Amino acid sequence: MSLSEDLNAAMKEAMKAKDSLRLSAIRLIRSAIKNREIEERRELDDQGVIGVLSSLAKQRRDSAEAYRQSGREDLADKEEKELAIIQEFLPRQLSEEELRALIETAVSDSGAAGPRDMGKVMKLVTAQTTGRADGRLVSELVKARLGA
C-alpha cells in the first residue's frame, strides 16, 4: 500500500472517529502533497511524499520551538501533536548511533579531511537519511565529526 493510500485510509478512520485534530493534520498533509504534485506536474511516488512529510515535520518542529520561546505553550502543544501525526507516516527515524555510523562511512567514502569537505559528506548522508532523520541533527553531527 502506498503512502497516499495510507493517508486516505487514515483520513477515513479519523472522520469515522470524529478526531478533528488528526483529520485536520491529515488534510494538511494531503493538501501539501497535492500542491507539490501541481508544482511538479506529476503524481508523487512514495519518495516524493516522504520529502513533503519531512518538510512538514521540520515546519512543525520549528513552529513549536518558536511558540515555546514566545510563551505560547498551547500553540506549541498543538504543533507537537500534529508533528506526531506526521511522523506516523514517515519511515522509522534513525538513532544517533545509526547516524554516526552513516557519517563515518560517508567520511571514509568521500575522503573528507576537514570542515571544508562538509558539503561532500552532507551530500552522501542526506541521500540516505531523507525522511529518516532531522537535517539539523545530521548537520550538527557532521560538523562535530569533521571538527568544524
Rank of each mutant, 00 (worst) to 15 (best):
L90Y: 05
R60F: 12
R30M: 15
R60P: 08
R61Q: 14
N35L: 13
E65L: 14
Q93E: 15
L83Q: 08
L83A: 11
K81L: 14
E40P: 00
E37W: 05
A32F: 03
E80A: 07
I86D: 12
G48F: 02
A64K: 07
L90I: 11
G48A: 11
E79I: 01
S31A: 13
I50L: 11
E43C: 04
E88L: 14
L53D: 02
A66C: 03
L83G: 10
P91Y: 02
S55N: 14
R72A: 12
L90K: 05
Q93Y: 03
R60Q: 14
G51E: 14
A76V: 01
L83W: 00
V49G: 00
F89T: 01
V49C: 01
E40I: 03
D74K: 08
R60C: 09
E65C: 07
L44C: 09
L83P: 10
A84T: 09
K81Y: 03
I86H: 01
L44M: 09
L56W: 04
L90S: 03
R60L: 15
R30F: 01
D45S: 08
G71M: 11
S55H: 05
G48W: 03
E73D: 12
E43I: 11
F89W: 06
E37F: 05
I85H: 04
A32R: 13
P91M: 06
A64N: 09
L83N: 07
S70N: 12
I86K: 04
I50C: 07
S31E: 14
L90Q: 07
E79R: 11
R42A: 10
R92D: 15
R61V: 15
D74H: 05
Q59A: 14
R41E: 15
Y67T: 01
R61D: 15
E43L: 07
V52L: 03
D77E: 13
D45H: 03
D45G: 11
Q47V: 10
G51D: 10
S55D: 15
L56V: 07
E82R: 05
E65N: 11
I85T: 14
Q93D: 11
D62H: 04
A57T: 06
L44S: 07
D74F: 04
Q93K: 13
L83F: 04
R36P: 03
Q87D: 04
I38S: 11
S63C: 00
R30C: 08
Y67S: 10
E37Y: 05
E80P: 00
E79H: 06
K78F: 05
L75W: 06
I86F: 00
R30V: 08
G71Y: 09
P91S: 09
A66Q: 12
I38Y: 03
E79Y: 00
R72T: 07
E88I: 09
K58S: 13
L53F: 09
A64Q: 08
E40G: 05
R61A: 12
D62G: 07
V49T: 11
A76Y: 00
R42T: 14
A66V: 09
S55V: 03
K58Y: 06
R36N: 04
A32G: 09
Q87V: 00
D77W: 00
I50D: 05
Q93C: 02
Q47E: 15
E73C: 02
A84N: 09
R36S: 11
I38A: 12
K58Q: 13
P91N: 09
I50K: 08
L90F: 06
S31Q: 14
V49L: 00
E43T: 15
R30P: 00
I86N: 08
